[in-house]
Structure formats: structure tokens, C-alpha cells
Simulated scan of single mutants.
Amino acid sequence: MIAVKVSYTVDGAYVQKNQENIQIFMEDFKKLSGNDFRYNVYLLNDGKTFVHLSHFKNSEIQNKVLNVPSFKEFQRQRDESGLNNTHKLEEWSLVAATTDILNEP
């Protein structure tokens, strides 16, 4: 399993547009079949820092999800909005969980 955390801060004027773009790609993610990934997006209390947490069964599923056109468009617009070097990507290794994150035995 692959677990990834991405965080970034946008300008206050871009927060609403970023949320709209997130809703668009999330609707497309929901259309993908199976239980091979989980993807959640959070907004921190500062009102402008977003955190994306994702879990993928494997790299093939990860590549499929991350190449959804609406997600690529979201990334383009987000990056062009001016992140001021706040973009941070971390890959994690799962140690333990209270539930089977991807419904795996």
C-alpha cells in the first residue's frame, strides 16, 4: 500500500476556487470502481492550507487515479495560483490501523 500526504497553502483569494476544483476531481474519483484507493482533502484552521491524504493499493492504481484529467487540471490551476514554495509531498509507510483502510484481508 502507498500512503501519501500533500500539503500546500493558497492565497486567501484562491481558497474558494481551489475548493471548487477539488469537488470536480473528487466527483470523478468517486466514479472509479473498486476499493483500491481512498482520497480525502482537509482544510486547516488557518482557512487556506489544504492537506490531501491518499491511500493506494499499489502504484498502478495510484497512476490511474493521479492521471484523471480533472485532477491534472486541478493541479495545474493550483500550481499557477502561486503556492510560494509551500507545496510539500510526503510518502508514508503504514505501521498499524484500527480498520482495514482498503478493505484488504
Rank of each mutant, 00 (worst) to 15 (best):
M1P: 13
I2Q: 12
A3M: 08
V6Q: 07
S7V: 01
T9V: 00
D11F: 07
V15R: 03
Q16G: 14
Q16E: 15
N18P: 04
E20V: 02
N21I: 00
I22W: 06
Q23C: 03
Q23W: 02
I24W: 05
F25T: 01
F25G: 04
M26Q: 15
M26V: 05
E27A: 15
K31N: 13
G34F: 07
G34L: 03
D36S: 13
F37H: 09
R38V: 02
Y39F: 14
Y39H: 14
V41P: 07
Y42Q: 07
L43P: 08
D46W: 10
D46F: 09
V51A: 05
H52Q: 14
H55V: 00
H55F: 15
K57E: 15
N58W: 04
N58G: 09
S59I: 03
I61S: 06
N63I: 00
V65L: 02
L66C: 02
V68K: 03
V68E: 12
P69N: 12
P69S: 12
F71T: 02
F71K: 06
F71V: 01
K72N: 11
F74M: 02
D79I: 06
G82F: 03
L83S: 01
L83V: 00
N85E: 15
K88D: 12
L89F: 09
E90N: 13
E91R: 10
W92C: 09
W92D: 10
V95Y: 11
T98N: 15
T98W: 05
D100A: 10
D100C: 02
I101Y: 09
L102R: 11
L102M: 09
N103M: 02
E104N: 11
E104D: 11
